[in-house]
Structure formats: C-alpha cells, structure tokens
Design a protein around this nucleic acid. Structure first.
Length: 466
RNA sequence: GGCGCGGUAGCCAAGUGGUAAGGCAGAGGUCUGCAAAACCUUUAUUCGCGGGUUCGAUUCCCGCCCGCGCCUCCA
C-alpha cells in the first residue's frame, strides 16, 4: 500500500511522494517564543514528529525547516513590560522550547530559523511583490492586496466576495483598501523595535516570515507544509498568497493540519483554568512519555480530549508494552523457532505499516501492536514461543519504538544505579531462601521507594524502573 | 450566515456495504510465603435520531438533533 495524506488544499486523500523522488522538503510553523510550550502546542508538534519519523521510515530523506517567531505584537509588548530587548526576552523561551520538546522526544528539524535573522529575506520577497503589483502603501505600512490574487481562499475553501460582512471583520481599519488585506511591513511605531530597510523603518508582518524562510531554505515549491488547524486561515492562506504572487509557482503540494486538543471537553484557555504547559504536568509527577503516548494515540486529524484520566491510562498502556519487552529479554524459552510466531510478527508489522501509511493512523497502528503482544504473551505462557523468535519480536518492537518512542523510561539523574539494584535484589533472594520474609519485604519496599519494582517470576527475579 | 471536523461500550478509540480492532477501568482466573508485579479470560445483537437505496448499512444518499473549531491573535 502506498503512503497517503489528507491534503487540506483538496480535502482529499492523496498519494504522497517528494517532487524529486528522494528528499522531502517540509516546512512547519513553529512556536512563538513568548511562553513555555503548552500541551496543545505539543499535540501539533508531536503529530509532526510522527510525520518526520514515518517519512524517514519509508525511505525518504528529510529537509525540514521550522521557524521560531521571535518578533510580534505580544513579544514587543511583553518585552517592554519586562524592560528587556526582544532578543533577551525570547532567548530564554527559545531555549526552553527545545528542552521541553526533547523531553517528549521530538526530533529537532534539520533547519530551525528565527524570524529576526531573516528580515532581509522578507524585505526581498516584499519588494518582489511590489514589482508584481500586489502591494500598496498606506500610512507608511506596506499591504498585500488580495483582490490581486484571484486564488485567495483556496486553502480555507472560502469565497470571500460571497461572505457576509460579518460582525467579526474589523470595519474600523480605514488604512486598508479591503478588510481582508493584510500587512507585509508595519511602519515603525514610537518605542517599538524596528529595522531600517528599503521599505522604510518598521518591522515585518506576521505571515511574511514563513513564506520568505520556507522559500529560502526549501525552494519555491515545498512538498509538505504543516501546522495546527487554526493556522489554515488566515496564516497559511496568506503565506500562499505572498509566496505564489512572488514566485508564480505553487507554494506547497501538501498541506497537513493537526486538529486541536481540548481539555476535559473544553477549549484550553488560561481563563478557564485548564491551561497546562509540559512543565505543569511534569511537576504533577507525570512522565513525558505518557503525554507523548496520549498525544499520539488519537489520529492527528481528530480533536483530542485531554484528561488526567487519559494521561494515567496512557502510562498504564506504556507499562504493558515495557513489560512485554522485559519479558522478551529476561524469560527463558525453548530452543528453536516457531513458524507461527514468525508469521504473527510479520503480520503485525505489515498492519502497523499499513495503518501509518493511511494518513498516519496511529490508533490503528497501536492496535496492531497490542494485538500482537497479547498473542505472543499467550504463546509464551503455553510454551509456543521459542528462543529463536526473540529476533522477530524484538524487530517489531524496534520498528514500533522508532516511531512512537515511548519504551525507554525517563530516568532521573539522581536515580539509584543498576548495580545497587542488582545487589539489593540478590540480597533479597537470599533472605527469601532463608525464609526471612521481613528482610525480603523490607528490601522490596526500599527499592519501591526508589521507583524500582521487583518481580518474582518462574525464572527468578527481574526488576524495572517505574 | 459561510467553511471544516466529529457523535461507536463507564472512559479513550479503530473500522468495513455482509454483520463491531485495540487501550484504560471493572469482573473472574493463573502464579505467589502473603503480597507485589505480571499474564490470561471476560465486558456493545450494537455504532446520535428519522427516513431512503440494497438480499443486507454502523459503513452509501436525504433530512434532523447535538458537540467542537475557524471566519479576529492563537498549535
């Protein structure tokens, strides 16, 4: 089966392959670095992480660029309130972003580009748009004239001329010819950060950074452009208008949008008191892997309802997989290879792959893995799983974890060492043999307090970190 | 009003024109010094509601109800 994605541009499933048959050129809208990442951000970024990993799994090379928005109205305002330059203000949050995303095991894109490092590139694109007659100047600011771009609205599937002049469109912006026109370059305002350019003193509008940087690093036509659903309009629509009006070429072939995360059935917002950053969850004692699993367990085009109950369920589900892996590595099996078990592993892998090929159906992919785990556990109990089957089973787990990446526990820096655990475990076994159950229970509890669980099995003791 | 997503067991959730994957929780069991941990079994005659097409629909069509998002900054 071939790799297919749902394309927002066409609202259809389409077979995917990169233009050049080798390297996928992908752009994703990154964070505005004015705060710590929240779990809604992470839902989108996690879905893009799966996309990255799956594209590579399927043999493509990857050239993925992600922007950091480090200048906008909020940043300017908050930096001013903090008495800092925008550079000082955003540097800390940019660093925190990569610390946090690494904890939930998001791969870093090949290219990370900051808006403030690319002012000149944005000015170049705006000048090209001027040349192409798509702009006008009003009160010192440069605007994009959407009536000059007939395809405006093709991504959000909106025909603006037929649209009711709704209450939500600003009607007091006298400086624009059309309410939907958007700013490319904002004239300098007193006290605000600005750059001198051929366009005059000012700063870039929000949308231009993505068009400029994407084309600079990936060429005029991208294979994939992705982001959260809220960006479809106006951000991505405007990116298309800017890029295509400047280059005359299609900006991106595939547009992938991740649905939003809700919290307890409601929109996450600070005013509702249900707003969580990754740091909030870690402080409450939840593991980064459990959040990663939860975020990935619902396919990206479906709204995900975050609950703490769900987070705990995710942690338990991961335990089941880790227990299986531990059993696979520690239990004793009869010599030989069981053909049926090999067949089951191959079937599980093909189901797993077909699921992810189908627009990254992570829920179905997980189903294939769990079904396999249960069948193999049953076979292990019945003696049907042989020593030679370890390779096939391990291979399946490796493929699974290359994408989901949740099997390896996060171990704190001050955790008890493996050697100490082994030593205490051995002492407990001795105590048990001597029927000194008081001492053996004491050791078990002592290790439990350190987050280590001892398990008695037919073949002896095994341990794991919780 | 326009555009889009969704309503499947207590919760999360996959799915197909031919009779419902998987996870969590619950119940039962195996193992065990008691435990812990682990593992196994089990839990929807039914897929928001009403019509229609069909030999047959949760899956296709029409209508309706409900939830959510975007149309303004937002992942």
């Amino acid at each position: 089966m071939s790799l297919r994605f749902h394309n927002t541009l066409t609202l259809r499933m389409e077979e995917f392959a990169p233009q050049d048959g080798k390297t996928v050129r992908m752009y994703t809208c990154g964070p505005t670095v004015w705060n710590y990442v929240h779990i809604g951000n992470l839902r989108t970024f996690a879905s893009q992480d799966i996309l990255r990993r799956w594209l590579r799994y399927r043999g493509w090379e990857l050239r993925h660029a992600m922007n950091l928005t480090d200048v906008d109205d909020r940043i300017i305002q908050q930096a001013a309130e903090a008495g800092q330059t925008i550079y000082d203000y955003t540097a800390g949050y940019a660093a925190a972003f990569f610390e946090d995303t690494a904890k939930v095991r998001l791969e870093k894109p090949e290219i990370v580009c900051k808006a403030t490092d690319h002012i000149g590139d944005m000015v170049d694109v705006i000048q090209q748009l001027e040349k192409n007659g798509c702009t006008y100047v009003s009160e010192g600011s440069v605007y994009f004239r959407i009536t000059g771009f007939p395809e405006y609205g093709k991504l959000s599937h909106t025909r603006f001329e037929g649209n009711k002049a709704g209450a939500r469109v600003d009607t007091d912006k006298y400086d624009k010819e059309n309410a939907r026109d958007f700013v490319l370059w904002k004239a300098r305002k007193e006290g605000e950060h600005f750059w001198d350019s051929q366009l005059g003193a000012g700063r870039p509008g929000w949308h231009i950074e993505c068009s400029a940087m994407a084309m600079k690093y990936l060429g005029e036509t991208l294979d994939i452009h992705a982001g959260g659903v809220d960006l479809v309009f106006p951000h991505h629509e405007n990116e298309i208008a800017q890029a295509e009006a400047a280059s005359g070429k299609p900006f991106a072939r595939f547009w992938l949008h991740t649905e939003h995360l809700m919290v307890e059935g409601q929109t996450m917002s600070k005013s509702l008191g249900n707003f969580y950053t990754l740091r909030d969850l870690l402080e409450k004692g939840h593991s980064p892997e459990s959040l990663r699993y939860l975020l990935l367990s619902v396919p990206y085009r479906k709204q995900l309802n975050f609950t703490f109950d769900g987070l705990r369920s995710a942690a338990t589900a991961i335990d089941r997989l880790r227990n299986f892996e531990l059993r696979l590595h520690t239990a004793r099996f009869d010599e030989g290879v069981d053909a049926l078990m090999e067949e089951r592993a191959a079937k599980a892998i093909s189901q797993f792959e077909a699921a992810l090929d189908d627009d990254l159906n992570t829920a179905e992919a997980l189903g294939a893995v769990f079904e396999y785990v249960r069948e193999v556990n049953t076979a292990m109990d019945a003696g049907g799983f042989r020593d030679g089957n370890r390779v096939g089973a391990g291979n399946l787990l490796a493929k699974f974890d290359a994408i989901f990446d949740v099997l390896r526990p996060t171990v704190a820096g001050n955790a008890i060492s493996d050697d100490e655990i082994e030593k205490l475990s051995a002492e407990r076994t001795q105590a048990k043999k001597a029927k000194n159950f008081a001492r053996s229970d004491e050791i078990r509890n002592l290790l439990l307090a350190q987050g280590v669980v001892l398990e008695d099995t037919k073949e002896g003791v095994r341990w794991k970190r919780k």
